[in-house]
Structures are given as C-alpha cells and as structure tokens.
C-alpha cells in the first residue's frame, strides 16, 4: 500500500486531536448525493414518505454522514489511501429541514490507540443538533 500520509506516526500520541470540522447538510446536497451514490430511497428527499414511515422529516443518507465524517481523517493525512479500515454504526438520523440552512454535522476525532506497523486507531465523534448520530465511528490509519 502506498503511504503518502503527511503525518508521522512518531508525531502523534494517544489523545492527539485531529482538526475538527463542521459540514452543512442541505436538501440539495441529499438530492445530489442520491444521484451520485444511486441510493434513491425517498426518505432522503421526500418529506411525505419520510413522515409516513414515522420519521420527523427527511433524513440524510447514513452513508452521506459517513462520507463527511471521514474527511476529518483524510484531510489530516492528506492521503485518503492511508485509511485502511473505517466503520460506523448509524445510531440516530440526521434530520434535514426544508430550508436554506438544513442541518449541520459536527465531527471531532482523536487518536485512541497506537497500533503496530505505524498505524493508529482514530475515534470519531459525530454530532447533529446535539445528538450523536454515529456510534463506534473508528478508522485505522496508516501513518508515515
């Protein structure tokens, strides 16, 4: 595997914080993601259908939130190929109102464990409207 990560294993410790980020989630972004990903489930763009199945409103694709969250890791390493494992649990939906502002997903992350072969485990905290929307959000990252 190519290792072009700009972060050195020797520079980080357990507890090292990655730069956090906030990501806007609008209805328009969800429509665009539906097209790009091929996931056209109407709960991600149709309020009537979302409410019929008991949701408060349209919700973001879990995979959209997963894609946003890992940017905190890939922007840190510079090389997205340094991510060797990435997993999440979809614990709560990101509810996206029909206005120009939409929702916000806030992501923070820190090094949780130093592993063999110059790899680290990064744990992510992903929150929207004060609620953790992803659980067990972890990436294993190859550092240089």
């Amino acid at each position: 595997m190519t290792v072009a990560a700009r972060i050195s294993y020797d520079e980080v410790e357990v507890g090292t914080e990655l730069p956090g980020q906030q990501f806007p989630v609008t209805r328009a972004a969800l429509v665009r993601y539906a097209g790009a990903s091929g996931d056209f489930n109407p709960i991600h763009w149709n309020e009537r259908v979302a409410k019929e199945v008991g949701l408060p409103d349209v919700i973001a694709h879990g995979m959209f939130t997963m894609a946003e969250a890992v940017r905190v890791v890939t922007d840190w390493t510079g090389d997205p190929g340094a991510v060797v494992e990435y997993g999440v649990r979809f614990t709560k939906p990101v509810v996206v109102p029909d206005d120009d502002k939409g929702a916000t997903v806030e992501v923070s992350a820190k090094v949780a464990q130093k592993l063999d072969d110059r790899r680290v485990r990064v744990d992510l905290t992903v929150v929207s409207a004060g609620v953790r929307v992803l659980g067990m959000a972890r990436a294993v990252v190859q550092l240089s």
């Binding site: 997963m66 494992e85 990435y86 997993g87 999440v88």
Partner: peptide, 8 residues
C-alpha cells in the same frame, strides 16, 4: 442500515 465498515 445498521452498521457499515470497510477494510481496504
């Protein structure tokens, strides 16, 4: 969708 993980 409950969980998702990738191993590359």
């Amino acid at each position: 969708h409950g969980d998702q993980k990738f191993v590359y």
